[in-house]
Design a protein around this nucleic acid. Sequence first.
RNA 1: CGGGACGUAGCGCAGCCCGGUAGCGCACUUGCUUGGGGUGCAAGGGGUCGCGAGUUCAAAUCUCGCCGUCCCGACCA
Length: 564
Amino acid sequence: MRWSQSFIPTLREAPADAEVASHILLVRAGYIRQLAAGLYSYLPLAWRSLLKIQAIVRQEMDTIGQEFQLPALHPAELWQASGRWELMGGNLFRLKDRWQRDLCLGMTEEEVMAAIAARELRSYKQLPQIWYQIQPKFRDEPRPRSGLLRVREFIMKDAYSFDVDEAGLDVSYQKHDRVYRRIFERCGLRYVAVEAHSGAMGGSQSQEFVVLGEAGEDMVALCQACGYAANLEKASAVPAPFADPDTAAQPERFPTPNARTIAELAAFTGEPAARLAKSLVYIVGDKPVLVLLRGDDEASEAKLGTAFGGAEFRPAHPEEILAATGAPPGSVGPVQLATPVRVLADQSLRGRRNLTVGGNQEGFHIRHVTPGLHFQPEWVDVREVRGGDACPKCGQPLQVSQAVEIGHIFKLGRKYSQGLGVRVLDAAGQEIVPIMGSYGIGIERILTAAIEQNHDANGFWLPKAIAPFEVVITPTNLADPAVAALAQQLYNDLRAQGRDVLLDDREERPGVKFKDADLIGIPARITVGKKAAAGVVEVVDRAHRQTIEVSTADVPTALAEMPE
RNA sequence: CGGGACGUAGCGCAGCCCGGUAGCGCACUUGCUUGGGGUGCAAGGGGUCGCGAGUUCAAAUCUCGCCGUCCCGACCA
């Protein structure tokens, strides 16, 4: 491609409404333009890259499954059958047709795939099936943000497996695990596979693929020593042990005026926050539940969901707390409750003694309270892991890091196959409901994550496999016939070798061309300049900013030897 | 949905507090110049000041309403 005839609208300055690196650079490099909040047009450079990413995904997915093309518009009945019409709330884009029939724009394709399976699959002999598609998906995000990282329309590869039983699902799940790793490796990403929360959809096993980086919205816990990695929604850890004072003192109520928060209580009593127990009250279904945590810990919403058995829950309102416990928020505790309330305690409190807890009376707390002795909680894991906690596998300290989710695989179960009536006969002639898996990859997020991990002050560089062009040829002075001719010859030669080449044939000063070449993500540059008459050019490695001089005949070798 | 900020030429901004009919840099056009990290000179083109209403002789500027965009939080199978 000739630059002079291309549409590559680069910007010298960062757009005012962009903050994260990938967003700023995608706009500056002429990859994307915003159409509305969370909606972006992909200009030619972005689309070339996204097509390459999709080609890799398609090629790898074809080794285990078959591609479909499905409608983006779905009838409401389908989503009502799965229960997601109500469940998804405002996140689902809804619309009506001219007959006032309800429709929605698909956020994923479980329903459509399951509907096809329900109509067509009859025998266990047709299983397993792995079906996938790569298409735009829609989510009416409450807050689109960070450029391409959180948008309302995006391209997702999602795949669904149908198996006779759990053992078959294991196999389908493992196939996806392998294929995903190949995809992300081929895309040149430095990624981590982390254990993930399987969500409220009744999944059993789940793994996320993430790229570490500050732009990410996920938090993951990592162990450098043994490789344990988990999303914070799922991660468990052993909190730093805490030695409680050894005393035979009995529980004792004492006044704590104006000490409502853990920080205030710690200041008032002179005890560290770890010696205090934090009591949170949730309404689970329609009943209050008290959850006890170490004072310096936070509750994980996702883990609470698991602890509550998937029931709907929300933090209790102050008046509900008062009615259930006898005290307003800030003085609530697990003993001497006004009404019988189910009490859960995080397992980090197991074995702890003589803690200080709320007194269920405004302005009072109780000290010398020992779990298991003075109250009998149900033990659960609901605390959010913190950096420095001990790894649950090997005991070494965990690191907590932000991450961008690029893929997610998980065992779905039978929710959709059941809800949409997928049934086949097994070998014994019995009707069974196949079990499903669900596997997603965010196509734009691969591009975005690659930029997040490969950028500097001048721009970014993409791995060769997903860059819009492998190499850009930069003639420094087209008025020099030797330079112009050599650049043209190199362009022809490299294209004849089947490479994606961009020739910067614009009448611009060298400085402008160098700046643009650095900006737009192409991993290699060939500068044709002063030594053109001698047939010598420079091959520049964008990532490492290293330049070598070679004769034109050696250019292919130099490109091949460039570290990825 | 709660909190905050912003909206003036394609982009980045000033002007608004203190009302008098819009300016800077970049980009763009033409000519000359320059030619290894966003050359220099000269001459140009381009703006319903987000939208609507109000106050006023007069509104980018003051008042009210609406819309849009971004950030923090909530949310995110």
